[in-house]
Design a protein around this nucleic acid. Structure first.
Length: 497
RNA sequence: GACUCCGUGGCGAACUGGGAACGCUCGUGUCUGCAAAACACGUAUGAGUCGGUUCGAUUCCGACCGGAGUCUCCA
């Protein structure tokens, strides 16, 4: 009997047993990037974590509809009335058509997701592709009386809304506290209340991104696209909504308010939030100027790094901590993770080269049970709010077993063939399918394999002649080239790194 | 100021009301021509500080100290 999946629901502030709305199916929405700049490692962490969530849900047998949006309009530089659209601003700076900016950074984002081995969502809707639906939602909210028009813009009436429904439940905000924290509106403002937010924004004359609407030419407000697109593809209520912690307020709070205002029900059953990536203890943010970009990580071309690290090493590093914890990036930590990742993948390789053989010496019941327990633990740990850190710890315990089988410290015949196959399947599926880790190849169509195989043959020949000078010279040179030679009982093997 | 969260070995990082995982590092041993790898064993008598609850707390409660996040755009 396997344990049940539990998810820490940020709305309820507790771990809850996951029960999908429709048995066997999961509606899963993740807030994607605003495509006006390159993604940094903080962005990547969130998407990698939710990639694992998605992968595990699939592993559990759910039919998952995974929606991750692209925000390509509406995200203002600030919340002032003269706030500029982020995409439009970048377009001006780069002297490009706004959609060129969008396409450029969307491509870059997709490329990174591919490099980090993240599965593609089932639907990746963009805000500009859903202008009509957004206008409809604005109209619905107006019809319900929870919004008002002002100079061609439409604002969500937070005060009015809060008289009928709770506002601030997700982020734990109290309206009066919020209001006291904001500065007074000047006479120029179109808003009735400082807490109101734009759901439709009138376009000024020079604004390039504009659409016709019942309120004149304009563009949709930032929070609206997620409400509209999640509703369109997952329904008025769906199972899981994920995003970074920094989106909790105001973005997700506003999403809830918009959905409740337009059709009366809270949209999400389980809210999940990933914690922030920090550098020297400070949040990595686009506006903080401390971003580390994936390219800098790979090349090592960054003041904080002494060398480059591979995409999979970073992925492994990220998964070694829980998604809800702060995650500090440092060179030392990366280095430790890189080693660990290599160790794990080495066991992965060893496991696939292992063959079961019975020698009739009988099965060791304790060993048998230990292996079976480890396999079950993988599920237990992941079921506990996707605890990848603990899952990896179990996989390392399995690694020891795998290596012991290989080195014949434990005879492989001490477990049954069924248990061996269980170990093989579980280890493989958790490393490859759930955590999404893969072996990093040199991508040269096996030429390296052939070459090194040949060189090692030559070395073996000199070893048989006891010509240690030559064999050591070959080994030292290979080591210099970052190729590690391992002389085992069953012959020689090698790994890069 | 308000609201959250965190403070665990040399480093990273989990879990837990009753033996402090796992990875890296370091040490010893087995293996090996040697080395590496692998395996085995060891490495925090202690979990920011001070109180309280408890037979018993790192784990629950309170205070304090330190750090972070959100309250404005951010994954």
């Amino acid at each position: 009997m396997k344990s049940q999946l539990k998810i820490y629901n940020t709305l309820a502030r507790e771990k809850q047993v996951f029960e999908p709305l429709v048995p066997g199916h999961v509606g899963f929405y993740v807030c994607g990037p605003t495509v006006y700049s390159d993604v940094h490692l903080g962005n990547c962490r969130t998407f990698i974590c939710f990639d694992v969530v998605h992968r595990y849900l699939v592993k559990l047998g759910y039919k998952v509809r995974y929606v991750r949006n692209i925000t390509d309009v509406g995200h203002l530089v600030d919340d002032q009335d003269d706030g500029e659209d982020k995409i439009a601003k970048k377009a001006k700076v780069m002297e490009l058509e706004p959609m060129e900016v969008v396409q450029h950074y969307t491509n870059g984002f997709h490329e990174m997701m591919e490099i980090f081995n993240c599965n593609k969502p089932n639907i990746e809707p963009s805000a500009t592709g859903h202008i009509i639906e957004q206008i409809e939602m604005v109209q619905q909210i107006l019809d319900k009386g929870f919004a008002y028009e002002s100079n061609g813009s439409v604002y969500f009436d937070v005060k009015k809304f809060s008289e009928s429904y709770p506002y601030g439940e997700l982020s734990g905000r109290v309206l009066d506290d919020l209001r006291s924290g904001t500065r007074e509106l000047d006479g120029q403002s179109e808003k009735r209340d400082s807490l109101d937010f734009a759901i439709w924004k009138a376009a000024s004359d020079e604004h390039i991104m504009r659409w016709n609407s019942p309120w004149g030419e304009g563009f949709p407000g930032w929070h609206l696209e997620c409400s509209v697109m999640s509703q369109k593809y997952l329904g008025e209520t769906f199972d899981i909504h994920g995003g970074g912690m920094d989106l909790k307020f105001p973005h997700h709070e506003c999403e809830i308010a918009q959905s409740v205002a337009s059709y009366g029900t809270s949209p999400v059953r389980y809210w999940m939030h990933t914690n922030m990536v920090t550098v020297n203890g400070e949040k990595m943010g686009k506006s903080n100027g401390n971003s580390i970009m994936p390219a800098e990580l790979f090349s090592g071309d960054h003041p904080l790094l002494t060398k480059g690290y591979s995409p999979m090493a970073l992925r492994f590093f990220i998964l070694q901590s829980h998604y809800s914890s702060n995650f500090d990036i440092s060179n030392d930590a990366l280095q430790a993770s890189e080693k660990g990742y290599q160790r794990l993948m080495n066991s992965y390789k060893v496991l696939h080269e292992l063959e079961y053989a019975s020698n009739g010496s009988g099965i060791d019941a304790a060993e048998e049970k230990e292996i079976q327990d480890l396999c079950e633990k993988c599920y237990d740990r992941m079921n506990d709010d996707f605890n990848t850190a603990e899952t990896i710890a179990v996989l390392f315990d399995m690694s020891k077993k795998i290596n012991s089988f290989k080195e014949k410290h434990i005879p492989i015949s001490s477990i049954s063939e069924d248990t061996f196959q269980l170990l093989k399947a579980t280890f493989t599926e958790f490393v490859r399918d759930v955590l999404g880790l893969k072996e990093e190849t040199t991508g040269d169509n096996g030429l390296t394999d052939e070459l090194i195989g040949f060189i090692l043959e030559m070395r073996n020949a000199s070893r048989e002649r006891k010509d240690w000078a030559t064999s050591d010279q070959i080994r030292d040179k290979l080591t210099e080239l970052k190729i590690q030679v391992k002389d085992g009982k069953e012959g020689v093997s090698w790994t890069v790194g």
